[in-house]
Simulated scan of single mutants.
Amino acid sequence: MELIRMVRIVLWSFFGVRKSAAHEDDFANVNFSWLPLVAVGLAALIAACILGVVLLVAHSTGTAQGF
């Protein structure tokens, strides 16, 4: 359950819109030693998804042009 809470905190921080009261409630009950690892892992996952979409689009357009 704590992992889900940390993932939610990190995703909200990536999005950048958060009420102050909810922010304070989340940080009152979180283990700060694991939070940076969760943030780096989610950033890598998002980057891998974006890279995968870009490679998929670039590959499909490259074959459509006959190269």
Results as ranks from 00 to 15, higher is better:
residue 1 M to G: 12
residue 27 F to V: 09
residue 66 G to F: 02
residue 44 A to P: 00
residue 54 V to M: 11
residue 24 E to Q: 11
residue 17 V to F: 00
residue 52 G to R: 05
residue 24 E to R: 14
residue 30 V to I: 15
residue 57 V to N: 12
residue 48 A to D: 07
residue 25 D to W: 07
residue 67 F to E: 07
residue 55 L to Q: 15
residue 66 G to I: 06
residue 49 C to S: 03
residue 18 R to L: 04
residue 54 V to E: 06
residue 15 F to H: 12
residue 27 F to Y: 14
residue 11 L to V: 07
residue 36 P to M: 02
residue 32 F to I: 13
residue 59 H to P: 00
residue 49 C to V: 04
residue 43 A to Q: 10
residue 55 L to E: 14
residue 34 W to R: 14
residue 4 I to P: 00
residue 53 V to Q: 05
residue 16 G to C: 00
residue 2 E to F: 08
residue 7 V to C: 08
residue 19 K to S: 11
residue 3 L to W: 07
residue 37 L to S: 13
residue 35 L to C: 05
residue 16 G to F: 00
residue 58 A to Q: 10
residue 7 V to T: 08
residue 49 C to P: 00
residue 28 A to N: 07
residue 39 A to E: 14
residue 63 T to Y: 01
residue 32 F to D: 07
residue 29 N to T: 14
residue 56 L to A: 13
residue 36 P to F: 01
residue 22 A to C: 02
residue 25 D to N: 12
residue 38 V to T: 13
residue 30 V to P: 03
residue 48 A to Q: 09
residue 47 A to D: 13
residue 28 A to D: 10
residue 44 A to C: 08
residue 30 V to Y: 05
residue 59 H to W: 10
residue 5 R to N: 08
residue 7 V to L: 09
residue 22 A to T: 14
residue 17 V to W: 00
residue 40 V to S: 14
residue 18 R to N: 02
residue 9 I to D: 01
residue 58 A to P: 00
residue 47 A to C: 08
residue 67 F to T: 09
residue 46 I to A: 03
residue 29 N to C: 08
residue 22 A to I: 10
residue 41 G to I: 05
residue 18 R to M: 07
residue 46 I to G: 00
residue 34 W to E: 12
residue 29 N to G: 06
residue 7 V to E: 14
residue 42 L to N: 03
residue 59 H to M: 09
residue 48 A to N: 06
residue 60 S to K: 08
residue 42 L to V: 15
residue 45 L to F: 05
residue 11 L to G: 01
residue 4 I to D: 13
residue 34 W to N: 10
residue 5 R to I: 06
residue 30 V to E: 13
residue 9 I to A: 04
residue 50 I to F: 03
residue 14 F to Y: 05
residue 56 L to I: 13
residue 28 A to V: 03
residue 19 K to W: 08
residue 57 V to W: 09
residue 53 V to L: 08
residue 58 A to E: 09
residue 57 V to H: 10
